[in-house]
């Protein structure tokens, strides 16, 4: 288990913690450039590409994406293709959001599934935006706890729901 907070189910009539989140506009699809269409030229993995991977993850509570809730922003995504590192900061909608670990886990899983194995993936909370920031970061950084969390069928279900595209 990653933490007790993860056991809380978002469904089932429990009142939402943040019922009226401010909704942000989605970025459009990344326009395809002539360079990208050229068979020969290599395209490096850049911040926008990483952001595109995670912006459409669904929030566990709302029928909205992390991008619409401003939980993830392109400026908080850093990638270094040459050194194979990715760092993502995410901002919970409210400082005591109990879903923070779950959101972090979803981002992490999405990146692990979508990036080449050479990458070292670091997902953490934007400093100063959550009450138990440190604890959550520690859980997300612990490989074994992440792996254990995904063994839990219930948790895996919630994560998969976040990761599956909108119907």
């Amino acid at each position: 288990m990653v933490g007790p907070a993860l056991a809380a189910s978002p469904a089932g009539g429990v009142a939402l913690e943040n019922a009226n989140p401010l909704i942000y506009r989605r970025q459009g699809e990344r326009p395809v450039t002539a360079r990208e269409e050229d068979d020969e030229l290599p395209d490096a993995i850049d911040d926008r590409e990483i952001f595109d991977l995670i912006r459409s993850i669904n929030d566990p509570e709302h029928p909205l994406t992390l991008e619409e809730l401003n939980v993830v922003e392109q400026v908080r995504v850093k990638v270094n293709d040459a050194e194979s590192t990715v760092s993502v900061e995410f901002t919970p909608t409210i400082p005591h959001c109990s879903m923070a670990t779950l959101i972090g886990l979803s981002i992490k899983v999405k990146l692990i599934r979508s990036l080449p194995e050479r990458f070292k993936v670091d997902v953490h909370i934007t400093p100063g935006t959550h009450t138990s920031e440190h604890a959550v970061n520690k859980q997300l950084a612990d490989k074994e706890r992440v792996a254990a969390a995904l063994e839990n069928a219930h948790l895996l279900e919630v994560v998969n729901q976040c990761l599956s595209g909108r119907p």
Binding site: E36, R113, R118, L156, V159, Q161
Partner: peptide, 28 residues
Amino acid sequence: PLDDKKRLVRKEAVTARGEWFLLGTPGR
């Protein structure tokens, strides 16, 4: 193909692989 040199290829690889990961798991 997740590490393909072309971005457009990587994009398709991500979508396809994500879908295969969800196959047969709860919450799909």
